[in-house]
Computed example of a mutant assay.
Amino acid sequence: MKNILGIFFDGKGLKKDNSLNIIRLFLAILVVYEHTAPLGGYKVNLDLFGKSVGAWAVYIFFGISGYLITASAFSNSVPQYLIKRIARIFPAYLAIQFVTAFIFAPLVTLLNGDSIAKLWETPVTPIGYFLGNSLLAIKSWGIGNTLSTNPYPKAWNGSTWTIWNEFLCYIIIVIIVSLIIKYKNIYIPLMAFLWLGLSFLSSHLPEVIKASGNSLIDVKLFVPLFAVFMAGSLLYTLRNYLRFNLFGGIVSLILAYLIITSFPNFGYQYAAPFILFVVFVIANKIPSPKWIKTNDLSYGVYLVAFPIQQLIAFALLKMGISIPFIVFVVLASTLSIFVASLSWKYIELPSLNKVKGNNLTKQEKIDEVPAMPTETVGATYRRSSRI
């Protein structure tokens, strides 16, 4: 009887030997799955509780990121923290933007029978695309008319807009932590207040959008994501009191379901701590392949999948071949994982080692990763329905 009760009630905080890497990789694949429908020209219903499965993947990813990034903010000086965040985001991001601008776009141009010189006569040239997007805030989605024959011709890498929102979360949380680090008694109430306040704002977005006016921050997209991020921050400040056991996971899952179904338009922000509790229970209980534990591919998959899917769609149309939706998903996922593994080995991990040093534990090297995109393909990426 004691052993049976132990299955439900025994637990601890988030273990260092957890399965978050495989969970995040799975979430990245869900985004590949989500993008396959519009990019491949398929009509598939991908909704879950009124939102796409990709949207749920992104919200969970932002919540996980909130937990891990808040841990980093508390354990590093502000300069160290910022250097690590820059090293985690920029090298791989700039690499895929460079490859897209100077390899993918010219390749498609040549296969279309046009001269590469034409790329330099368009409003957005390869160098304009690369430089315009180099500081995370996306200025250009396309390069000339390179994708004009694709089912979705407007963006080479529509996923990347989210990184700007992620970086804003990074900046804001380190400011918050630097202001309160000496006041331990307010950690939990402040994080709870911020999560609840952002969740409330998420439920009143029209008024918030009207009040914000024009700014660098698209509050319609940023506020709901930051609310989920702060839910992760709250769980980090509560880490000494939490035990991620099966009973708590079941209760949290029920509470999350009740909140989401009661408030379908904004309930996920209020349900975020309970959803994350379930995720951390899974991360503690489910084993992960050793290679995935020490090689974090989720960010790389997120970065490379969209342009790879565009290339696949272009090639299929060029050859006059039609393949089933699930085959497209598997092909795009496999190629994305392969390229992401190269990105991790030759770009991301060396960059992290350079700023962190080579004597860190494996977990320290992979403790943070930018969140994934929330946007599905629509009329424009900034105004389409979320993934």
Rank of each mutant, 00 (worst) to 15 (best):
W156G: 03
W291Y: 06
S384P: 04
A37H: 08
I163T: 06
Y268P: 00
V304S: 08
T122V: 12
Y187F: 14
N358W: 06
I96P: 04
L221N: 04
Y81W: 14
S52M: 06
L111H: 11
I366Y: 05
A117M: 12
F266L: 00
I69G: 06
L14F: 11
S212H: 08
I69C: 07
P153Q: 02
K51E: 13
S134P: 00
I143R: 13
S65P: 00
L111Y: 08
A95N: 05
F8S: 11
D218Y: 04
L30V: 00
E121L: 10
P153D: 03
L316G: 05
V329H: 01
N150K: 12
V301L: 02
L234F: 12
S159L: 04
T70S: 14
Y236D: 11
M1C: 10
L5N: 03
S140D: 15
I308H: 12
L311S: 08
L201H: 04
V99L: 15
G158Y: 00
S77C: 12
N359S: 15
V53F: 15
G378F: 15
S52K: 08
K182N: 12
L234W: 04
G232M: 10
K15P: 06
N265D: 14
A340R: 00
F338W: 05
L30F: 14
G249S: 05
I60Y: 05
L48K: 13
I143W: 11
F280L: 08
E121G: 09
K118S: 13
G13L: 00
F90N: 04
N18A: 11
F102G: 00
Y33S: 03
K118D: 13
Y170T: 01
K365D: 07
L234D: 05
K154Q: 04
L194S: 04
S384N: 06
T109W: 13
